[in-house]
Design a binder for these strands. Structure first.
Lengths: 207, 207, 207, 207
DNA sequence: GATGAATGAGACTTCATTCAT
DNA sequence: AATGAATGAAGTCTCATTCAT
């Protein structure tokens, strides 16, 4: 049974355009409808056939890429047997798809403020459960079967653990962006350290 | 010897105005020069006597508050004897001065993109050393004298440690904002866990 | 001999749609081609097969309904023997078909300005003689046979009379619209007074 | 005691610009903010310092000119001793200031529809009593002292009379506009006939 | 012939910046 | 030095019109 919404080619074109603008380093608040539609290769008016306003274009684009990223990540995860391997996978995917990964970080970031975009995001966030993007589920998938079905920790610890893991992932993303032309060796070392760090957090929490 | 720049009352008024707008929950991209000068109680033209444009007002305001926050934090730190106590102090200050603390997070955030504000930030960042806000110095002050003058870790480890500590501090800030009306007990538990988490990171790094 | 233009069903659908939008209280300047074609139940592109632009749709629709209204009015008039009865008939028809009647008032109103719609109207007005809507003919039909074939008044008086009669009819229309939910008795009194007033104008002019 | 609102030069400039656009025959619904401000010789943004939107500019302009027209008309009326003279004065003023007079007609016209402009008008109409532009007062001033203080007719008759008088005045205005290049003699004859017609209406009503 | 998705010109409106007072 | 009225570039969004299907 598939309850996933299908998007029309024009919608996808908008989503891709937003992503490409992110990649070019444009600030989320500075790009215009004209920028988006030019990048998407469609007319300005066309965008408004599919979205009610600019914020909706950006919000849905972010959401779309975050979802795509997570879905394909979850699928790949099934092949990884240990927590360490799964975290390593996440970190590598963040490296290769930094723009897509940033969409997830932005979801978190934006949902904190009161801008028009923030509002739109929060409206769409209502759809999260449909799409299976709830942060605790992401965490659950990482920790996963390694610890058996019966892994259960206190609510407080879970909340803390989520914070700890997400913060490390986000910061790795920011680190990569600030050091775009990093030598491979250094990036691998850093990745390794982050991965070990996250593993340690999980272990501590599960004691 | 004091190489610190002195600010005129009008400049301070602008800085305060920006902070108050943050506190009111306004989005950094949504407030206007008119908003800022109205809040500051000065004329719009006057602001342009002291700043070259809007981005400079906001960038310098963020920088100013980040600096003020750090300076007073450093001073208070001298009284704390252990790493744990010093981290606890930082976390408590973040709680009581969430708006000021956010200025630091914004410094990091904004410095990643190419928006007008981001550009300005990066120009001002050149001044960092003057103001003593280099992240590694902040870290150094936290780890500080506890370990004697001779604490010296590899460059890699230092970079990782910085990332780990800052990520936890930032996330605590975001956590507080998303859960503005949190019961005291829960907040204290979370703070305690974060503090312990940071201490552990440091210990591990120093092995 | 019939030189009347026949309209296709699609054209009629457009004409009806315009009338219905009038009835719903929409302002002539605010409704869109999309509104019209939606109401008409046809595709947007189809409308352009029959009309060169939006103004033509509206102008022709107004003209069509004005004509229909007049033609059926003229027919009914044949049964009325006195000037008074004929005027009364006109007033009653204005009451029951306020939207259609308004089309006539709009013809007069719009033909005064230089808007796109006004231009179109004036182009179509050239067709007036074809359609038999010349104001003086309308007047002639009202005064009509009561006074024999030989009724002939000076050009000046005729022009004045037309003005006087039309002005009272128009104002009755406006009055009805501004007082949409009027009690029957009051409306009948007003109608009676208007009718007597118009009769008096005619009498005076014919002296 | 003067409770009349004073307008700034920029507001007056907008009001004049709207009037001049009317004079050029532009349709009320077709001219743009750019048109208005260009005609007024001010910047587009400046208009928005004084009016909240385009409709307010036009609505207030119409209202302003209607008021100005009426006020100066009322003043002049004091010198005229008979009803005939007063009506003649009104007709002559309509002739010389057709654009201004049209503002009054538009007030009546627009107040019937549901366009954005109509809404604005009706909001401002609330101010009517302040400005002394109530239609029945206008009528009262025309009939005026000729008939002593105690002139009192039935409500119905008064309503009818107002309709009859206003309709003739409006139609004279429309007549003038449609026949812009009328020879003087003809215009004077028509004016005379209209004037007599209005007088007769009043006499009949007062019987 | 009928359609409606696509378009882009152009409308309204905002707001950073200037400059005469 | 301080101001805020004035400005116009630039942004968002609408809608009449076209054209491939």
């Amino acid at each position: 049974m598939n309850n996933r919404k299908e998007f029309s080619p024009k919608e996808i074109a908008i989503f891709q355009a937003v992503l490409e603008l992110f990649r070019d380093g444009a600030d989320i608040n500075s790009f215009t409808v004209a920028d988006i539609t030019r990048q998407a290769g469609i007319g300005k008016g066309t965008a408004y056939e599919y979205f009610s306003d600019k914020d909706e274009m950006i919000a849905k684009a972010i959401f779309y890429h975050a979802e795509q990223f997570c879905l394909s990540l979850f699928e790949q995860m099934l092949d990884e047997k240990t927590v360490y391997d799964r975290i390593m996978l996440v970190l590598k995917r963040i490296e290769t798809e930094i723009a897509e990964a940033n969409c997830i970080f932005r979801l978190i970031q934006v949902s904190c403020n009161k801008s028009g975009l923030g509002q739109k995001m929060q409206e769409i966030e209502g759809l999260k459960s449909v799409y299976g993007l709830k942060p605790d589920e992401i965490l659950g998938r990482i920790i996963g079967s390694d610890f058996g079905v019966s892994v259960s920790i206190s609510e407080y610890k879970q909340e803390y653990l989520m914070l700890a893991v997400i913060s490390k992932l986000c910061c790795y993303g920011i680190y990569l962006q600030k050091n775009a032309d990093l030598e491979v060796a250094k990036r691998e070392t850093m990745r390794e350290m982050i991965c070990v760090g996250i593993c340690r957090e999980i272990e501590e929490a599960l004691i």
